[in-house]
C-alpha cells in the first residue's frame, strides 16, 4: 500500500495543517456503483486475457515451434530426406557412383607418373 511519510507534515504552517487534517478525515469515498463498475471491468478484462491464453495451437504449429520454426523445419526435413536416400540406396548404386569418380580420376594418371619420375631422379 501507499508509503506514509511520518515527517511529511513537519514543515506545514500550522494554519493550513488544520485544513489538511480535515481533508484527510473527510477523505472522499467513491460510491458503491463505482466500485462495482471497476470490478466488472476487471472481470471482463480477465476473461479476455484467459481466452487469449487458451487459444489452442495446432499440432503442426507445435512441432514447427519445437524445431525452430518453419525454416528450421525445412532444414530438418531436407536432412531427413538425404539420410533416407543414403539408407535405402543399394550397394550397386554406390559402386556405380565410385566408378564414375575413378574414371574421372584416370584423366589425372599422368600426374602420378610425373611424381614417380621426379622421385626417382632425386
Amino acid at each position: 500500500m501507499t508509503h506514509k511519510d511520518a515527517k511529511s507534515h513537519e514543515t506545514v504552517p500550522s494554519e493550513i495543517e488544520a485544513f489538511f487534517t480535515a481533508a484527510r478525515l473527510e477523505s472522499p469515498a467513491p460510491g458503491k456503483a463505482f466500485l462495482e463498475k471497476v470490478e466488472l471491468d476487471a472481470l471482463a478484462n480477465m476473461k479476455v486475457t484467459r481466452q487469449i491464453a487458451a487459444v489452442p495451437r495446432g499440432w503442426l504449429q507445435t512441432i514447427a515451434s519445437s524445431v525452430g520454426g518453419w525454416i528450421g523445419g525445412f532444414g530438418l526435413a531436407s536432412a531427413m530426406a538425404l539420410g533416407i536416400f543414403v539408407g535405402i540406396s543399394t550397394p550397386q548404386d554406390a559402386v556405380f557412383l565410385s566408378s564414375d569418380i575413378t574414371s574421372e580420376l584416370d584423366e589425372f594418371a599422368w600426374l602420378e607418373d610425373f611424381a614417380s619420375d621426379t622421385w626417382e631422379e632425386l
Binding site: 469515498a29 467513491p30 463505482f34 470490478e39 476487471a42
Partner: peptide
C-alpha cells in the same frame, strides 16, 4: 483477487 484489487486501489485512484 480482482475484487480485492478494486477495493484496495479504486478508492486510492478516486481520492
Amino acid at each position: 483477487a480482482a475484487k480485492a484489487l478494486t477495493q484496495r486501489f479504486g478508492p486510492l485512484c478516486y481520492g
